[in-house]
Computed example of a mutant assay.
Amino acid sequence: MNPKRLVDAYDLVVFDLDGVIYLIDRPIPGAVETVARLGEEGRSIAYATNNASRRSAEVARLLTGMGVPATDDQVLTSAGAAAILLAERLPAGARVLVVGAPALQAEVRAVGLEPVTGADEAPVAVVQGYGPSVGWGELAEASVAIRAGALWVATNTDRTLPSPRGPLPGNGSLVAALRTALGREPDVVVGKPAPALFTAAAHRTAASRPLVVGDRLDTDIEGAVRAGMDSLLVLTGVSGPVELLGAPESRRPTYVAADLGGLFAPADALRVSVDQPDPHGWRVTDDGVGLRLDGAGTTMDALRVLCSAAWSGAPAERGVTGTSDAARAAVRELGLDSVR
């Protein structure tokens, strides 16, 4: 075993699911093999998802059916975390208006609260999570209940949900509809970027050195930063090179890789920092207008070098230009040739 591999520096790998392990119900290429390899090596694994449409047991069965063995206690969902929070704040049997999938209703019921569907049932709280069939009627009932004084808890505020057809509206888009109608924010947002799912995963396994693997800067990576954990961004889901170059410090991953294969690559080759030298022949300069990439190397190395320059204060938002054939090809492949 090569001790310089990224995964060897950590005692727990916490995976996001949508955009990292699967897209809706299809495994992402390489995910099954990666998890199998980690299992063969005896690595501790956990899964943390903002998607509140399935309970932990359902997610574990879905993963296992895809060829990714998982147990119920390896999966942490925002639905389960939201139900626990409500149970801590409300008396047993309190009525909670549930906007979301049946899984969220089941989680609320499992902690001793009574899920309801109408504002006329006098709920003391509203919990809102993603559900593919959520419509205007449910949002209207939630609006009435919240205006009447009900606590408003959102499982997460992800604007989009990755899919094989591209990003689709996520729970954050539905939360935005209520935010517009009510003119205020939810009282509590449970899921990422709040650190609770990550810290719970580490607590369950007694891990002292966890690594978070995600595809979104605004949830997975920011959540890892808040939790004080290192993170790996993979480019198989939502966040891409353009967003990465402009990431504020609170959303910057420790490492960047094209996919989960990065877990077995040398850690130093994947690390991104503001003070790292230009690796493998790439050179980045600031010409006062934007960033200029020159030299040759891998496309992912080019991205990491550009991130280092942009995070150091160079004006990446003004554009990235390749000045050699290899550099122009890398800029095109990264989708940065249209950044102006």
Rank of each mutant, 00 (worst) to 15 (best):
A309T: 02
V20Y: 11
S338V: 07
G137H: 06
A207E: 10
Y130Q: 09
A265L: 02
K4E: 15
G223T: 05
G149I: 04
R304F: 08
L62A: 12
L260T: 02
P164Y: 04
P167T: 06
D325T: 09
R283P: 03
T199S: 15
G112M: 01
W282K: 15
A154M: 06
V127D: 15
V98D: 10
S250L: 05
T155S: 13
A94E: 14
L139M: 10
A207I: 03
D259H: 13
M66C: 04
V111M: 13
G65N: 04
A148G: 15
V242Q: 15
P253Q: 09
D287I: 05
M1H: 14
A60I: 06
A202S: 14
N2T: 05
D259V: 00
M229E: 08
A206H: 08
A316G: 04
G67T: 05
M66F: 00
T160A: 15
Q128P: 07
V111L: 13
F264L: 04
A196N: 04
I21T: 14
A267T: 03
L303P: 02
A92D: 12
L139G: 04
A94F: 03
P29D: 10
A142N: 09
G166R: 05
H280G: 08
L211P: 04
R332N: 13
A60Y: 01
L86N: 13
